[in-house]
């Protein structure tokens, strides 16, 4: 019974009946979606960075020169059983020296003085399965310093720590800011549609008196709300796609050690999600504002 052409025409007419208001709410929706996209992209990027760093995180346990081999093996076995570690490698002081010389050979600014003795120590190199656990493991190992086996513990997960903090702040702050923006966008859409409804209140009254259904009254406004959402999404995505190459170039040159990959489907997913979200917000806002008017 519902004629699509009627609904589309009525929605379009409604949108341009009050262009300032409609464009203002379109702009608000764009801003919300831009913020939304910004958070999604940063979050994805940081997650990727954390993932890459995590696979590299190591703890080094320098062993006491006098440690008994059986104690060292026991410690190694104990660490290997810990689910937070992915591998534990025993590196002798000779092996460590060989590596150092190798590095020096590739770096002209470093030179290994001819050393007769070996100043390095035997060590255990621990690869972690999960960066979050590095604190716990290093703390428990530090407790054993000076007890005969563990000489010192070196951990360097501070970069990961910082990244984790940033992602946490971003996701909490992002959710808060997004919630606020969502509220603002809904508020603006609700009011835009409410004004549109008000402008057509005589028409709505007569529509209902001659037997139009509630849905017939409602649809043009919902479509108008969705139009605001879709246009907002379009503007936001155009802006994102315009600056995306510059930003990713900057990211790559800044984080060249971190090949942050957002996945090939990511852009398609983002576009779909932004549009779906925008349509939902538009339709939801419109439904709220029409509902109060149709109550009677």
């Amino acid at each position: 019974m519902m004629r699509v052409s009627y609904v589309a025409a009525a929605a379009w007419e409604g949108f341009w009946r009050n262009p300032v208001m409609s464009l203002a709410s379109t702009f608000t929706v764009s801003l919300m979606l831009l913020l939304f996209a910004f958070f999604v992209v940063s979050d994805r990027g940081l997650q990727a960075a954390v993932g890459i760093l995590e696979s590299k995180v190591e703890l080094a346990v320098y062993l006491d020169d006098n440690a008994k081999p059986s104690d060292i093996l026991a410690l190694k076995a104990r660490l290997e059983r810990d689910p937070a570690t992915s591998s534990v490698l025993y590196v002798t002081k000779d092996e460590a020296l060989r590596r150092l010389k190798e590095i020096a050979a590739r770096r002209p600014d470093l030179a290994v003085e001819d050393v007769s003795g070996n100043p390095l120590q035997n060590s255990l190199e621990i690869k972690l399965a999960n960066a979050q656990d590095s604190k716990r493991i290093s703390a428990s190992l530090r407790d054993e310093i000076g007890k005969g086996v563990v000489g010192d513990v070196i951990d360097n997960p501070s970069v990961v720590d910082k990244l984790l903090t940033i992602t946490r702040v971003l996701s909490v702050g992002g959710v808060a800011i997004l919630a606020m923006m969502l509220f603002v966008a809904l508020f603006v859409i609700v009011n835009t549609i409410r004004i549109a409804v008000h402008a057509r209140r005589d028409e709505i009254e007569i529509m209902k008196l001659v037997g139009a259904t509630d849905w017939f009254v409602r649809w043009p406004f919902i479509v108008e709300g969705m139009l605001v959402g879709a246009l907002g999404a379009f503007v936001a995505l155009a802006a994102i796609l315009a600056v995306a190459p510059a930003i990713s170039a900057a990211l790559v040159s800044f984080l060249d050690i971190l090949p942050v990959s957002l996945g090939s489907n990511f852009i398609a997913e983002l576009i779909t999600f932004v549009f779906a979200f925008a349509l939902l917000v538009g339709a939801g806002g419109a439904t709220i504002s029409v509902r109060t008017h149709l109550a009677r």
Partner: peptide, 24 residues
């Protein structure tokens, strides 16, 4: 009467059919 001032005579009359979903 309850006529719509922004619509012509024909549009006002046809309105009862348009909003009940009839074909143009």
């Amino acid at each position: 009467f309850k006529l719509l001032q922004t619509k012509t005579v024909a549009q006002n009359i046809g309105f009862a059919l348009v909003v009940t979903g009839h074909h143009p």
